[in-house]
Design a protein around this nucleic acid. Structure first.
Lengths: 155, 155
DNA sequence: ACTTGACCTTCCCACCGTGGTAAGGTTGAG
DNA sequence: CTCAACCTTACCACGGTGGGAAGGTCAAGT
């Protein structure tokens, strides 16, 4: 009897299932993240062997790859939840998907603009800094809120 | 005697000190963050009234503004630690400051490039998606890893 | 002198997404 | 039968920030 149970994983493998490690290797999502996504309800609870090992069929691994790709494109967990829902809904309108994607593009644009703003300012400051042995430094002056003068220290 | 101690904050105020709320208002750093930065050792422990209230003189508030500005430019706490050190070191070489800033610019560039890569891909996908009532959707196809065909769902 | 509300203090918990690690059970091959 | 490589759950951490509870203090109005 314990012998029989002990074979369960081998049985599953013969039936085309992967354990979490193989599913991870096949999808690019780490085992850790797979469990985490499951705990969030992003993935439905995996099937288990009697020993409690999670097992994944090829369709499950496909879902994992979908999630991975979506993360690579910067979608948040919540956005991925929506995308997964649309993917698995045959009656979806592509307009819905497009809306999610466009909203995400807008988010990306905002972040990019933010970073570029920082970049522009820093570039300016670096440009005006001699970058030599002397202590005078427009970068510190700016951070210190000096309108334009020599790097004053507090106190 | 307890009366005398109770006056300590008023004394400090007369002497030009601010409590944490005023320091926050004057620097743009929230009281929460001020305490957090102090706990990290980014700021040296604030002076206290006998009642335990933190008090800040104008130079301290100046430091807070410096930190705020640096955060606004995307510097990490650790980078700010370095910048503060340089700011307060009269023997610094501006080259040191410039190096920190340039390293940060490189980090920003990397993040920007990453986000722009996502943006480009998404833009492409959105461009090819009809965005109508029909379920066919190149965006989902891409996420699902379909080389180029109709949006296939798993199972 | 007393109440009241706005402040302060410390402490812990949450987020997001990921990584680590510890303590224990399973598996599969030598 | 042993041993390494896996699996399981359960915690803690990061960077920064926000929220809130429980308690103390301050200043102003009555």
């Amino acid at each position: 009897m314990p012998r029989l149970l002990a074979l369960e994983l081998a049985d599953a493998r013969r039936a085309g299932y992967s354990n979490i490690g193989e599913a991870a290797a096949g999808s690019g999502v780490t085992p850790k993240m797979i469990r985490y996504y499951e705990s969030l309800g992003l993935l439905k609870p995996a099937k288990r062997t009697t020993a409690g090992y999670r097992i994944y069929d090829p369709a499950d691994v496909h879902v994992l790859r979908f999630v991975r790709r979506a993360r690579d494109l910067g979608f948040s967990i919540d956005e991925i939840r929506q995308l997964l829902g649309l993917w698995q809904n045959r009656r979806r309108a592509s307009a819905e998907v497009r809306k999610v994607a466009q909203r995400h593009i807008a988010e990306l644009d905002q972040k990019i603009e933010e970073l570029q703003g920082m970049r522009r300012t820093l570039e300016q400051l670096v440009h005006h800094c001699h970058g030599d042995e002397r202590p005078e430094c427009p970068i510190l002056d700016d951070l210190a809120g000096v309108g334009g003068g020599s790097s004053e220290e507090p106190q």
